[in-house]
Design a protein around this nucleic acid. Structure first.
Lengths: 244, 244
DNA sequence: AACAATTTTTGATCTAGCTCAATTTTCTAA
DNA sequence: TTAGAAAATTGAGCTAGATCAAAAATTGTT
């Protein structure tokens, strides 16, 4: 496996190594024998690239399998009967998508690159093989999908809160996810537009803009276009407390 | 397995048979050999009972395993740091809960009986055994959890719509879920309170009440306390269309 | 059957955040 | 480097649905 050893404190999302990639537990899950690990390595296609705006898979198309993002970022979006987009999630390096096609064998969502990205791909037809040869890996996938469910419940909880809390939580959530992958948690690029943030959080993009400016004016954050620096994490956390 | 052959057109939620129970695919999934099926039958505890208000498991407690509801109904709820309840879902006969504890081994949610209910229980410690002995069953669980994710995305989509659309969709959703399990889709008991419906849909209970009265005044539905009859399904569907 | 507690309904007011509109800034591509 | 397009910001008014309040209906209990 080709590790790309690039500084982890970079302010943009750079390639993750196999060690901190979320595929880690798929490529080399604890408790699995070497045969299973070797088998998986043969099944995964590495080093796929998409440019900003290009899709990895489309809603309505046949299940492509699981995708692990190695660098860059993406959005996961669904569409209503009228074609209106709903941004379900933003995907950061080391994170996995594809669950939206697994149950029905048809993708429910579209995954679109927010900037140039690189991903690994476990094709759909090879998952059936894993059921027989590497049941432990399927169990890992089950745990991951339950993690996704937990996140969705978290988002549902946030949707009861004010727009200010939602934006504060959003910034802290991205920060934390970057941190656990070894990136800078205090300075990073928000590669999605205000409109996409608003869509995801269920608030108007004008409101997102106003709140970001508010946080900046209060010196909680500094933002230059898409480049964000968290100045006062504690104050952002305070926004999540009941009194606000 | 003891089948309880009770009329499926009953207006309250009665016991499901093994054939239409959602555990069906766990008890006797297609493509699994008899050894696996027999093995599972030994692992599942049947005929557990809870009275209205009693919990099957609590948020924060260790993962209890998977629960399949055989009769009655329940609510799945999470809580914020302040103790405010969020109704994540309502559970109908034949449906499964427990995914909220699988990833972290701690339950994220509480499941509470909305009326007397009966359930089957696959204990947590036996799931590990299934990974080795019945990998096909774990794959079925994975598909189920992905189905849950799909539903969550559906709910997220609905949250962008008006309160009227949300209530119309809620009624039609319950109706459809009862239908696929073989119950009457046009006449049933809404065992949850207006407050719980509102909590789940993200609207005030007063608003739920007003909209239900509106639907009744327009002769789309007839409601006596918790007993609901759908008079004009087509009109309810119309509410989901863009023009409204 | 009567009481108390809870839930539901209905009315009246209030407000967070949306929508519409007009600039300003940033990005893209020649 | 510059023009045109897209995104972000800022302002001002508007509205769906929240909140507050009070009455009516339902449910559970002795």
């Amino acid at each position: 496996m080709s590790d790309l050893n690039i500084s982890k404190t970079s302010t943009t999302y750079r390639p993750v190594t196999c060690e901190n990639c979320n595929l880690e537990n798929l490529c080399m899950p604890k408790g699995l024998d070497k045969q299973e690990i070797g088998g998986l390595a043969l099944l995964v296609n590495r080093n796929n690239i998409r440019q900003r705006g290009e899709a990895i898979y489309h809603a309505g198309s046949p299940f492509r399998g699981m995708i692990a993002l190695r660098s860059g970022s993406a959005k996961l979006a669904s569409f209503d009967q009228n074609g209106n987009e709903l941004v379900v999630a933003f995907i950061l390096p080391g994170e996995i998508v594809g669950f939206d096609g697994l149950a029905t064998q048809l993708h429910n969502c579209t995954v679109t690159a927010l900037e140039t990205l690189n991903y690994c791909h476990l094709p759909a037809h090879k998952i059936e093989q894993l059921v027989i040869n590497s049941p432990g890996l399927i169990y890992v996938l089950l745990q991951r999908s339950c993690n996704e469910l937990d996140s969705q419940v978290q988002k549902m909880l946030m949707s009861r809160h004010s727009a200010e809390k939602r934006v504060a939580n959003f910034i802290l959530n991205i920060s934390e996810r970057l941190r656990v992958r070894g990136y800078s948690e205090l300075e990073f690029r928000l590669s999605m537009s205000r409109k996409e943030i608003g869509n995801h959080l269920g608030i108007a993009h004008e409101t997102v803009s106003r709140i970001i400016q508010l946080f900046q004016s209060r010196q909680f954050i500094e933002i230059k276009s898409k480049q964000l620096r968290i100045i006062d994490k504690k104050e952002l956390f305070n926004f999540l407390q009941p009194i606000h």
